[in-house]
Design a protein around this nucleic acid. Structure first.
Length: 536
DNA sequence: GCCGTTTTCGGCCCGACTGTTTTCAGTCG
């Protein structure tokens, strides 16, 4: 088994088992147990070595422990093998189609034998899905449009998926002596949240030899090999968008040999433009005045203000989350579990909150120089009220509000709903303000301009959600918000200690939005942060 | 499948929405 990927592999097999069991109509709690175990293991900060490492974890007992043990020993599980004997692995892809769940996926396979999105697409295109199983016209239509989206999605890469590929390629090539340098270029290096491929640039004098090695790589990897002396120039050329690179190229004329990317900009008397800014939207003018924003960097972050724990749907307890934050050099974190109405996420009732606070008091005393803020991620109900009584909100250090239900409201309604919620004097932060899930769910219809304006005027902090699946706000909205005087919080919305690492995606997105440290409240000291929050 | 400080069996995760179901099954968040 590949080093470092053990947890992911175990987690992947467990979640496949969950999917297959669900398709077969197994007891939902058994299914949930596998799914939860998969999530817990994926979120662990340490590589699991043995059964003993996992059976101590919440939600993992002897049965799943034995399965993990088997995967660790032989790389797979006999339960998993039995299941894919019955249902081909490709049938799981059907679950990615909007509106298709385990039951429909299984019945499509049973009645047609289709075992991949492409096969299913072919069946529908040629009208052969009609009359099979109990699928009627409207459902088939829905599947048809969903399947195109799902196939499209298969071709695209989120930021995290792109980095994973890059890391793997880098690892693979690191011991080849004639690979002199390697870098990410293209949209991924600029931090774009969705890309069609991972553009990678390699410096080598032995293009042909190298080509033979990288020839059969994934279609989503685009590798270019250039002579080492040209590496800085091509790094520049393949990184910026067209507008940016064309303008710079006109300025540098025919010169191609540089010692570094920095030198390219300095040669033409420009300030060095960081990759995230190379979008051709005014950065060159600012660079010519040496007046680019002093972009925020990961080391500016002093704390995370949106963190879940075992109290709701997180997979780690509060003390473990705190330790992980301290390890990152943070000075504070806010525990913001879900509130009561979000039943699926184990939302906390007012009584739960009081109990959680008793635990927090105990932990607080043990942590020197690190502050845990008592918080909540309160659900914004359809009418714009929060599902937490005022007396609880009053007792908290920080209140995050967010929408988790009724996504399909009309724009006017949704805008009013959110405005009402952030008018609540106890609300400090609006979390994931557009609700999008990249490649899965569109943002809800909302007049975001109006929200940003209101937030700017009233001192509501807008969240940049660092989860690579969300990354809302995007760079355009961040710039717009900044113009309207909005302050931001770059949060991870961590549900496990591993998720804290996602902060880098939030920071790169903030940089694309031209943010500086001072625009972001979680770069402030705890006292300054408290001052901002208390002003509400 | 997991869990338990009155339980080793019997609860866990629920409500809204949608489609073709005339009384509910499947999906989603």
């Amino acid at each position: 088994m590949e080093l470092g990927n053990v947890n992911e592999k175990v987690s992947e097999i467990l979640s496949a088992i969950a999917d297959f069991l669900e398709m077969k109509g197994e007891n939902v709690y058994r299914v949930m147990a596998f799914r939860k175990a998969a999530r817990t293991i994926a979120g662990l900060p340490r590589r699991i070595e043995s059964k003993e490492d996992v059976i101590v974890l919440p939600g993992i007992g002897k049965a799943i422990g034995d399965i993990v043990d088997e995967i660790l020993r032989r790389g797979t599980s006999s339960l998993y093998e039995e299941l894919i004997e019955e249902i081909p692995e490709g049938v799981r892809e059907f679950l990615q189609i909007q509106g298709v769940g385990p039951k429909t996926a299984f019945s499509i396979y049973k009645s047609t034998g289709a075992s991949s999105l492409e096969e299913l697409y072919e069946l529908i295109s040629t009208g052969r899905l009609k009359g099979t199983g109990n699928l009627k016209e409207k459902t088939i239509e829905k599947i048809y449009s969903g399947i195109e989206k799902a196939m499209e999605k298969k071709k695209l890469l989120r930021l995290d998926q792109g980095y994973t590929i890059y890391t793997a390629v880098k690892d693979m090539l690191k011991n080849i002596p004639y690979v002199e340098d390697i870098t990410l270029v293209g949209g991924l290096r600029r931090g774009k949240e969705i890309n069609s491929d991972a553009d990678i640039l390699i410096a080598s004098k032995e293009e042909e030899r190298l080509k033979a090695i990288i020839d059969d790589m994934d279609s989503k990897i685009d590798i270019k090999i250039v002579p080492p002396e040209m590496f800085p120039y091509y790094t520049f050329l393949y990184t910026g968008n067209n507008i940016h690179t064309k303008r710079i190229e006109e300025m540098i004329r025919d010169k191609r040999i540089f010692n570094s990317e920095e030198e390219i900009y300095h040669t033409i008397d420009l300030q060095y433009v960081p990759p995230e800014l190379r979008e051709g939207i005014g950065e060159i003018e600012l660079a010519s005045e040496y007046n680019l924003p002093a972009l925020i960097s990961p080391s500016d972050i002093k704390g995370d203000l949106h963190i879940h724990s075992l109290w709701s749907d997180g997979t780690a307890n509060i003390i473990d989350m705190a330790s992980a934050c301290i390890k990152r050099g943070y000075r504070y974190m806010a525990i913001t579990d879900h509130s009561a109405s979000l039943k699926v996420a184990g939302g906390l009732s007012p009584e739960d909150i009081r109990e959680q606070h008793r635990e927090l008091e105990l932990i607080r005393d043990k942590l020197d120089g690190f502050t845990i803020l008592k918080g909540i991620e309160a659900d914004i109900l359809p009418d714009g009220t929060l599902d937490m009584p005022e007396e609880i909100l009053k007792s908290l250090d920080i209140v995050i509000a967010s929408v988790h239900t009724k996504f399909r409201m009309e724009e006017k309604e949704m805008t009013e709903r959110i405005l009402k919620a952030i008018s609540n004097p106890y609300v400090n932060i609006l979390a994931h303000p557009t609700g999008r899930i990249l490649l899965e769910r569109d943002p809800y219809k909302v007049d975001i301009e109006k929200i940003l304006k209101f937030a700017g005027e009233r001192g509501i902090v807008m969240e940049i959600n660092s989860s690579p699946e969300r990354l809302d706000l995007n760079e355009t909205l961040i710039r717009e918000g900044k113009r309207l005087g909005v302050k931001f919080a770059i949060n991870t919305d961590a549900h496990s200690t591993n998720h804290l690492e996602n902060i880098s995606y939030g920071v790169i997105t903030a940089r694309r939005g031209w943010l500086e440290a001072k625009d972001t409240v979680n770069t402030y000291s705890i006292n300054d942060l408290f001052n901002i929050i208390r002003r509400r």
